[in-house]
Amino acid sequence: MSSWDINPVLTIEHLTMRFGGLVAVDDLSFNVGRGDITALIGPNGAGKTTVFNCLTGFYKPTEGRIVMNRLNGEHFLLERMPDFQISAHAKVARTFQNIRLFGGMTLLENLMVAQHNPLMVASGYTIGGIFGLTSFRKAEREAVERACYWLEKTGLVDRADAPAADLPYGDQRRLEIARAMCSGPELLCLDEPAAGLNPKESAELNALLQYIRKEHQTSILLIEHDMSVVMEISDHVVVLDYGEKISDGTAAAVKDDPKVIAAYLGVPDEEVDAVEEEVGI
């Protein structure tokens, strides 16, 4: 039994997602270990982003169960929750493949929006805020401090008051991570965080993710194409192809899995036969 099966933060069981006749995800089950960095990889169109959309509530899965186990012992069945509650109560945050920042708002504002729910409570659901309650002012100051903390961690603090759309691409990716972290998640889902980054930025990203995992009791599930990122930082790799799980294990184990190699590179016919014989089809 692998470490991620003992104390999983997220358990996905028999997840199936159909769009009409198309089966995007087919009977997928895996665990995300608490405190791990788990990578979900696979060729284009393998259904990785669909899995993300199912577990963050943007799609309702056709079948299956997704259980989020929070640190305080609460369990949430994500497939039954509306998307905004998954972030608010189950503490699952995500980023997007095509970055979705609030472009016309400043970096600081972006991070303040991420702390909407606690601030809403602190402002007495707006009514107290209008009259300027001191408890709200305090909460707001703390929110700004938390935002600054993440801006510093992502190296963006100098541009706190600049509009988010003005940032270069790599910075926007980091800002999206910072924004997700500001919502205080226990599971952070990153959809291709290293896409479009240069090697230096990519290395910085690795360090940031390691830091988040180590210091903030946040488990990370990421989709990635950049194998250097995957191999370097992941504790656990799940490989999808055509919506099905074809491999599941440590980075080293997955790397040598013939099915993974076949899925990525394609293989000569005779090798397919050999592999099929080996796995017993």
């Binding site: 905004f84 972030s87 609030f102 929006v113 402002s123 707006t126 805020g129």
Partner: peptide, 25 residues
């Protein structure tokens, strides 16, 4: 300047991102 106002503006910018941040749109 209150959370609700910022949520309105965030909604104008990107509704999906709002939902991913736990805002009841």
């Amino acid at each position: 300047k209150l959370p609700v106002g910022r949520a309105w503006e965030a909604l104008r910018e990107d509704e999906i991102a709002c939902r991913s941040l736990g805002i009841n749109t």
